Structure formats: C-alpha cells, structure tokens
Computed example of a mutant assay.
Amino acid sequence: MSLILLFSIPRFIIVLNANQTGNYKLTSFIFILMWLTPFIFLTKSGRNSIGIHKPKNHQSLFFSFILGVLACSIVFLIGKFLYQNTIENWFVYISNSYKSIPVNELKGEGETIYFILFALIGMTFSPIGEELLYRGMIHECFVKLLGNNKASFVDSLAFSLVHLAHFGIIYSNNSWKFLLIPSLLWIILMFFTSRLFFYCKIKSQSIYGAIISHTGFNFAMTYFIFYYVL
C-alpha cells in the first residue's frame, strides 16, 4: 500500500498542476522514476518475479498490441457516443495536453510529424513506467496475500483511480470541476483496461506483454486525438 501512495499522490498532484499550467515536464520525470524503481530496489531474482524477463510466448506480444488498440478504440467510441466533442469526453479533455502544438502546424506533413513525435512519447514513458510499477511491483506485493488474480484487482483499482487526475477532476474555464458520471465511467474503463494489460502479461508470461498492450492503447489514443479530436 505504501508503494501505491508513494507514487500515486505525487503523480496525482503533478498531473493536476500540469492540466492547469500546461507544463507536463514533471510527469515524464515521475514515469522515469517508475522505470528505475525495480532496478534500484529489487534483486535480479525480484525483477524476474515481477516479469522482467524474456516472454515465453513471443507471438502474444503482437496480439497484446492489437488488444491495446482495440481497447482504446472502445474507450474512444464510448466517449464519442455519450459526450461527442464536449469537455465531458475524456479524450477531448486529455487533448488539452496537446494544445502546445501550433494550430497551423496540424496540417499535412506537419500533422504527421507531430503525431509521430507525440505517439513515440506516449508509447514509451507511461507504458514502461506504469506497467513496471502497477503490473510489476505493486501487483507482486499482493500476490502472496490474495493470489495472482485478486492482486490484479488491487493494482487495477490503483491504476484506474490515479487516472482521475488525467480526467474526472478537470480544470476548465479557470476553475476546477468534478464530473461525477463521466469520471465514474472513466474509472471503470481504466479498470478493465488495466485488467486487459494483466491478461497480456499472463499470456506472454512476461511484463513485456502488459507494456506492449499499454503501448498499443497509447498509440491508438494519440491517433484518435490527432485525427478525430484536434
């Protein structure tokens, strides 16, 4: 539990502040700390126990990526169907973090370049950091007590709740708002997405399955924001 609080509270505050100021540099720093944590605090045996080893099923990595893309597509379609292009749509609100891009650059070749740049950032920092922490270290902390499947419920709940900072508690028109129903839907969607990442870890028998699936989700999210939201 202390590991959840140690990362979740600072990350929550930093993301909320970034949503207000538009400066997201510190969020990348948090993800890098997540990357480093298993290599600082765990032995080689400990890192192996959380899944940092070669996947037993390499083919499953491809399907993990596809499943991540499909999961994001469902999340996008639900938000679009329920809330169209309003601020209650999670991807519309998250697209505010892309507003540093000059509007005149989002045309033709410039749009493609920015898409590739943002996609690469989204496919590296958070997927690696979050999966090593949530599907790795946090998950393993609860395995002996709860078993593998129930431990996934804990790490998935922690993962989904921390994403309230990304959407749910929003900063709009110079004031903070809490969107009760949209945020509940967002938490549920993030919970089941997190469970999907755990499934991909199990199928590949490696943390890399979860990372690749998360990568696919973030790739699709960047695509939808660039080509259907912005």
Rank of each mutant, 00 (worst) to 15 (best):
I52V: 13
I211S: 04
S2D: 05
L132A: 06
H166G: 15
G22P: 09
F115W: 13
I188M: 10
I32C: 05
I113C: 00
N104V: 14
P102M: 08
S73F: 15
V92L: 04
S97D: 13
K54C: 06
A220N: 02
E105G: 04
L179S: 02
L145I: 11
L185A: 04
Q20D: 06
R11T: 13
I32W: 05
G147N: 05
T86A: 01
S152N: 09
Y223N: 05
M137W: 03
F62D: 04
L16F: 00
T27C: 11
F81S: 15
F118W: 13
I74W: 07
S194Q: 11
S183P: 01
I121N: 04
L120E: 04
S175Y: 05
G122D: 00
N218W: 10
I121Y: 08
F142D: 09
V92E: 07
N174D: 12
F31E: 12
F41C: 04
L196P: 02
T193V: 09
D155R: 12
I202C: 05
E130A: 10
I66F: 05
L61P: 03
F153K: 03
I74Y: 10
L230S: 14
S206R: 12
L3S: 03
I50E: 01
A151K: 05
L36A: 14
A165Y: 01
T215M: 15
I9S: 00
H163E: 12
L82W: 05
N174W: 00
K107F: 13
P10C: 04
L82G: 10
T86I: 01
T21R: 07
L33S: 14
R47H: 10
T112M: 15
L26K: 15
F192S: 01
P38W: 06
S8R: 02
G209M: 08
F91L: 15
R47C: 11
S95I: 06
F115I: 13
F81Q: 12
Y134L: 14
L185K: 02
E105P: 02
Q84E: 12
T215C: 13
K44V: 11
I212C: 03
W90C: 02
G122K: 00
F31I: 00
L26Q: 12
L36V: 08
S73H: 10
E111P: 01
E140N: 15
L157T: 15
S28V: 14
R47T: 09
G68M: 07
K54T: 11
V69Y: 02
N48Q: 10
A220M: 14
I187Q: 00
A220C: 07
Q84A: 11
I207F: 07
P10S: 03
I225M: 13
W176G: 08
F167C: 00
V15H: 01
S64G: 15
P55D: 08
N89R: 00
G110V: 01
V15K: 01
I9L: 10
F198I: 10
V229Y: 07
L179I: 07
T215L: 09
C141G: 04
K99A: 11
H163W: 13
I128L: 14
G22L: 07
T86D: 03
L161C: 09
V69N: 03
I138H: 09
L120I: 15
A18S: 15
M34N: 04
L230D: 05
L157P: 02
K56P: 03
L82P: 05
